[in-house]
C-alpha cells in the first residue's frame, strides 16, 4: 500500500467537494475492492475519502411503491432487512449470497454498483428491477447507468447516494459461482414489473446485459420452460481458464430456468 491522505467527511457535499477537487482521490465505503487493490499496489490514490461517516448515505426504507436503499447499506443489512424481505425477497436472497460473512458485513450496495464488476451480483438486480440510481447530482435509469466492464455513467467526483427499486410483481435470481473466486460465473435475474418483464445476465459477459429473447419468451409465458428453449449466444461472453464462452452461454439458460423457478 502506498501512502495516501485520509478524509472522513460527514456530508455528501463535503465528500463531493474533496473528490471534485482531486481527480486522484478515491471514495471508499466497505473497501472490498479498493482495499485489496491498494494492498497489491495496483492503485495509488492521492487520498481516500471514507464515506462511512455520512448519515445521508445510510438507511433502507419503503417509499410507496419503491424501496430506497442507501449507498452505505451493507450486503448483510440488505439480506436481513425486513423491508427488503417483504418488498423484494429476491434482492434479500441475492444479498445473502454475496461473498462470505466477512464480505457481507463490510461490502456496501453503493460500492458494488459504482464499481460495476462484471462478476458482481447487485448490478443484475438494479438492471433487472429497472431501478434508478440516485447521485448527488441527478437520477440515472439503470439502463443508462451500466456501461460495460467497471464502467458506469458516474462522472468524476459524482457520488452514488441511493438506489430506488420499484417493487416488482415477481423476481428471482440464480447464479453459478466461479469455482475459485466464488464471484458470479454466470447469473440471471428475472423480474416482472409494471414496466415489463426483464431478464438480466451477469457474470457471463463483460458487463450486465438484458437478454431480449428471454424477456420476450418470459413475457409471453412466465415459466421456466419458456426460457429453457432460448439459447444464449456465446459471442462476446467471457472465456477463461475456468470455462469457455460456450459453457457460460449454456449456464445462462440453466440459470434463467432456475431464476424463474426461484421467483415462483
Amino acid at each position: 500500500m502506498y501512502d495516501f491522505a485520509y478524509h472522513k467527511p460527514t456530508t455528501v457535499a463535503d465528500a463531493v467537494k474533496i473528490l471534485s477537487a482531486d481527480p486522484e482521490a478515491r471514495p471508499i465505503s466497505g473497501g472490498q475492492t479498493l482495499l485489496p487493490a491498494l494492498k497489491h499496489r495496483l492503485n495509488k490514490p492521492t487520498a481516500v475519502v471514507d464515506l462511512s461517516g455520512i448519515a445521508e448515505l445510510k438507511g433502507i426504507r419503503r417509499e410507496g411503491d419503491r424501496l430506497v436503499i442507501g449507498a452505505l447499506a451493507k450486503h448483510g443489512e440488505v439480506a436481513n432487512s425486513p423491508e427488503v424481505k417483504a418488498a423484494i425477497p429476491a434482492l434479500a436472497q441475492m444479498a445473502s449470497t454475496i461473498g462470505d460473512t466477512q464480505v457481507r458485513n463490510r461490502g456496501t450496495i453503493g460500492g458494488s454498483v459504482s464499481n460495476n464488476d462484471p462478476a458482481a451480483d447487485y448490478p443484475a438486480a438494479v438492471l433487472g428491477l429497472d431501478a434508478t440510481v440516485v447521485t448527488d447530482k441527478r437520477r440515472i435509469a439503470a439502463d443508462d447507468f451500466f456501461q460495460g466492464m467497471f464502467t458506469t455513467a458516474l462522472e468524476p467526483g459524482e457520488l452514488l447516494v441511493a438506489i430506488e427499486f420499484p417493487i416488482p410483481e415477481k423476481a428471482g435470481y440464480a447464479k453459478m459461482r466461479n469455482p475459485a473466486s466464488r464471484y458470479v460465473m454466470a447469473g440471471v435475474f428475472v423480474a416482472r414489473t409494471k414496466s415489463g418483464t426483464r431478464v438480466v445476465v451477469n457474470g457471463a459477459g463483460p458487463g450486465v446485459f438484458r437478454q431480449a429473447e428471454m424477456e420476450t419468451a418470459l413475457a409471453a409465458n412466465w415459466s421456466a420452460d419458456a426460457v429453457a428453449g432460448v439459447k444464449q449466444s456465446p459471442d462476446g461472453l467471457n472465456g477463461d481458464i475456468h470455462g469457455s464462452a460456450e459453457y457460460r452461454a449454456h449456464l445462462v439458460t440453466v440459470m434463467a430456468k432456475r431464476a424463474v423457478a426461484n421467483a415462483g
Partner: peptide, 17 residues
C-alpha cells in the same frame, strides 16, 4: 495454469481453487 509466455494465470485464490 501457465500461458504460453510463462505467466502463471492461476496466481491467486481468485483463480486457483
Amino acid at each position: 495454469v501457465y500461458d504460453e509466455n510463462g505467466q502463471l494465470l492461476s496466481a491467486s485464490f481468485m483463480d486457483y481453487q
